[in-house]
Design a protein around this nucleic acid. Structure first.
Lengths: 115, 115
DNA sequence: CTTATAGTTTCGAATATTCGAAATTATTTG
DNA sequence: CAAATAATTTCGAATATTCGAAACTATAAG
């Protein structure tokens, strides 16, 4: 029973983290942070996002503890808070890239989920 | 530019897959399928879910190509369609379990995301 | 103190997700 | 064909996510 409760917490946590990553923009943000910290301003420009919207996405990642921040003058620098988590994310991306290259089913079914 | 388009597809696909996993019930389903295929009926009982609801979740996983099916008489057996993807999912779970055990920030912040 | 720049928060509308209930489909057995 | 069992689909209401617009906060520089 005790184990079941831990499992429930774990599945809930896992779902929360997946939810954080369940958005192309947030995945692009995490991707941008793979090579080190970046300010919001620079990210907004390189990703082509409005600052307010980027900030909203960063807030999601921050609240889940996926990214961390550091202020320096006017700029706030974001970085990945947990390299293992980012690595796990990358592994999934590699698997999917492989699928894409193989022209597998996953590719064709993209977007055919819930309308 | 060509590469950017591939990247966009990849991020979109990645987000779709994360969306599929962004639900505790679906993660429990995937977890149950780690040890081999199972019928909907058995899963419904072991996970304590209404069959209609389980079927809805299975449809999400099916549409994204994450699980595959096989019919045998009245029963339909579900299995994981891509072991690498399931493995990537497990790796993330291991990272999170470690965090949970360490009593880290992620645990405390669970559920404090968007209300 | 004023202005400029960087970033965040709030609000509201559009869209998507979730789940129960009820209806429907598929297969087997009598 | 009728009845039973397994599974799926459809519908609708409650809830959550997403994004632009506008307002707001924080820091630096004059």
């Amino acid at each position: 029973m005790k184990q079941k409760i831990l499992d429930d917490k774990l599945f809930a946590l896992h779902a929360e983290v997946c939810k954080s990553m369940a958005n192309p923009t947030r995945l692009k943000i995490l991707n941008a942070l793979e090579n080190g910290e970046q300010s919001v301003d620079v990210m907004a420009k390189s990703l082509g996002l409005r600052k307010a919207n980027l900030s909203q996405h960063l807030a999601v990642l921050r609240q889940r503890g996926i990214v961390a921040t550091r202020r320096e003058g006017l700029n706030i620098y974001y970085r990945c808070a947990n390299s293992k988590m980012l690595k796990a994310c990358e592994i999934l991306r590699e698997v999917l890239l492989e699928q894409l290259r193989e022209g597998g089913k996953l590719f064709e079914q993209l977007g055919k989920g819930r309308k």
